[in-house]
């Protein structure tokens, strides 16, 4: 066991998987000699060499497309997108090539496409986005977003070993802000399994990524007001753990869906539909969403702070729902 940051946990997963399986290799911009824009891959070029840690031109479409091709040949590519916002440049390769290959030609594409997502860093509209909804409507893709260092390592290993394309979102706000004791040895966190981070009686907060920490903070504070939140960390967005979600909602009878991404067409909408379809009778109040508003991510601190969901906004929504 050793205390590592979320970022170091990601690096450990990459390093251990490369050690374990010689077919695992990395490709992306500035990931080799420089060690990545956020230094996630630091030291891996020295350890595994330029054949397995490949610095590429600024060509996201080629990075993802080439990863697909290599995967078809038995390799296990892990592509880094410098900021996940730039995944838009590889949209076609992901949604039309990678996602549909197994279905239409019986060939799996075991790639991982990872990159930093999320706001809070004053990065403005193109370095702060949460892009899961762009891909939610694409059968064939998987998506995960860890909230802890433990999960960051375990989910990445699971993603690399998965037989299908996995988008791995790492919240850049968490990179160096959270750390924990995690096992040095091999373990995985299975894709598709949520985790209850905090047990509670009154309201289920279903969330993922950096918002898990927001939910836990709100839960601590609300405890003093006699409102007991249960916090469910989805970890996997596609496929998602329907059972865990429904179990929690049935238990508390009230639910808040919390995410950092914007509202319309956001992930919460899908969850709300499933909850309404399957356990409507158990609900004692409306299904509530706490999300960012429907604007691009603004840059200026007062604007970004206004934009991002936080503990106060969640607490306000929870108080209203508790009183319902």
């Amino acid at each position: 066991m050793a205390v590592v940051t979320y970022l170091e946990a990601i690096r450990q997963a990459l390093s251990e998987e490369m050690q374990r399986d010689e077919n695992v290799f990395l490709l992306g911009e500035d990931i080799g000699v420089y060690g990545g824009a956020f230094k996630v891959t630091e030291g891996l070029y020295e350890k595994f060499g330029s054949q397995r840690v490949i610095d590429t031109p600024i060509s996201e479409s080629a990075i993802v497309g080439a990863a697909c091709g290599a995967a078809m040949m038995g390799m296990r590519p892990v592509a880094e997108i410098q900021f996940i916002d730039f995944i838009s440049c590889a949209f076609d390769q992901l949604t039309n090539y990678a996602a549909k290959s197994r279905y239409r030609q019986g060939i799996g594409i075991p790639i991982v496409v990872r990159g930093p997502c999320g706001g809070g860093g004053r990065g403005g509209p193109f370095h702060s986005q949460n892009v899961e909804s762009f891909f939610l409507n694409t059968p064939g893709l998987k998506m995960v977003e860890p909230a802890t260092a433990y999960d960051a390592k375990g989910l990445l290993k699971a993603a690399i070993r998965d037989e299908d394309p996995v988008l791995y979102f790492e919240h850049k706000f968490l990179y160096r802000r959270i750390k924990e004791d995690i096992p040095d040895d091999d373990y995985i966190v299975p894709i598709g399994k949520a985790k209850v981070r905090r047990e509670g009686r009154d309201i289920s907060v279903i969330t993922y990524g950096a918002m898990v920490h927001v939910a836990l903070e709100a839960a601590e504070k609300l405890q003093h007001e006699g409102i007991d939140l249960e916090v469910v960390d989805l970890r996997s967005l596609l496929p998602y753990d329907k059972e865990a979600i429904l179990n929690s909602v049935v238990k508390t009878s009230k639910v808040i869906l919390l995410h950092e991404a914007t509202r319309i067409g956001g992930y919460a909408g899908e969850l709300a539909a499933v909850i309404a379809e399957e356990v409507f009778d158990c609900l004692d109040g409306p299904i509530v969403r706490v999300t960012a508003p429907d604007t691009p991510v603004p840059y200026s601190p007062p604007l970004e702070d206004f934009f991002l969901p936080n503990a106060e906004k969640l607490m306000k929504a929870a108080r209203q729902l508790a009183a319902y």
Partner: peptide, 13 residues
């Protein structure tokens, strides 16, 4: 990241 004529009003950088 300030406001004013000729800026993006804090929206972009």
């Amino acid at each position: 990241a300030k406001d004013g004529e000729g800026t993006s009003h804090g929206r972009d950088l």
